[in-house]
Design a protein around this nucleic acid. Structure first.
Ligand SMILES: [Zn+2]
Ligand SMILES: [Zn+2]
Ligand SMILES: [Zn+2]
Ligand SMILES: [Zn+2]
Lengths: 138, 138
DNA sequence: CTTGAACCTCTAGTCACTAGAGATTGTAGA
DNA sequence: TCTACAATCTCTAGTGACTAGAGGTTCAAG
């Protein structure tokens, strides 16, 4: 059994975040000492590592809640898990696509001015004022 | 002179968002009718279009505030504008980099299970539980 | 038994909006 | 001119996933 600080160190999740996860129902309510401090065992450590890893991969709290629910029922179909994972993948791909469009326009805009002129003649400001100057939609 | 609803239609910025921009100091306080409703002219339209375009390109409110400040002083050096634009570009590139790593891992994880098995044997859940199964850091 | 680091709860702040309540105003048709 | 009703007004609160701080209590080493 170890303290919240120890759990935080081992998982690299900050203490307030751990308490936040508990409040959100992602982590079961921890056992307490007689003085009301939280105590964790290996189960808690594994669960928080799972959450941390899923968060690092960009899953939402809501998605993780479903995944944990599934993990707690070993005999259920895992269809939902694969669905959640591929949705997340689709989401990430959509974000990449969007960001690549932005990268193109921003590269073009940045190249348009070396910063040695005056605001009035600045291509950066002109480009921001007028989307028509953009190569495509974004 | 036109109403906030008309401005909203022309710029595709929602009405509460326009009011929010005004409160944040991004838009000057609009003129009002005797009955206290906002009225805009072409200047307001151009300013909001600028904001909208910059937001679409991912600039923060804070960055846009600086850009507008610069625009209002045509004789100032535009160095700050190019700095803000290239920071934004760097930011976008960093995000793309990160998302590409996520995409790789998520693709691998998604492929690991077809969703026809049972939670206990699910590779998706196993992969989320253990970062060691990942190809690299992310 | 003392000390001080670690812990507790609670509130509020972050960013860029979005939603809703309840009241007032603008405008077009009768 | 009156009436209906769409549009607008202000204000408060909610979103997601935390983060920061105040003010008080507990744990553990010496
Ligand atoms: Zn310039
Ligand atoms: Zn554009
Ligand atoms: Zn599976
Ligand atoms: Zn991993």
């Amino acid at each position: 059994m170890f303290s919240i600080g120890e759990l935080s160190k081992r998982t690299k999740v900050k203490i307030p975040t751990i308490r936040y996860y508990e409040e959100m129902g992602l982590l079961a309510e921890a056992e307490r000492t007689s003085g009301n401090q939280r105590r964790y065992d290996n189960d808690g450590l594994e669960r928080l590592s799972f959450i941390r890893h899923a968060r690092d991969l960009g899953f939402s709290i809501e998605a993780i809640t479903s995944l944990i629910e599934l993990q707690d029922h070993p005999d259920r179909s895992c269809e939902a898990a694969t669905y959640i994972a591929s949705s997340q993948l689709a989401d990430v791909r959509a974000k990449i696509k969007r960001l690549k469009l932005l990268e193109k326009e921003l590269t073009r805009i940045s190249k348009g001015c070396d910063g040695r002129g005056v605001s009035e003649d600045c291509y950066v400001l002109a480009a921001l004022a007028d989307h028509e100057l953009c190569d495509r939609d974004h």
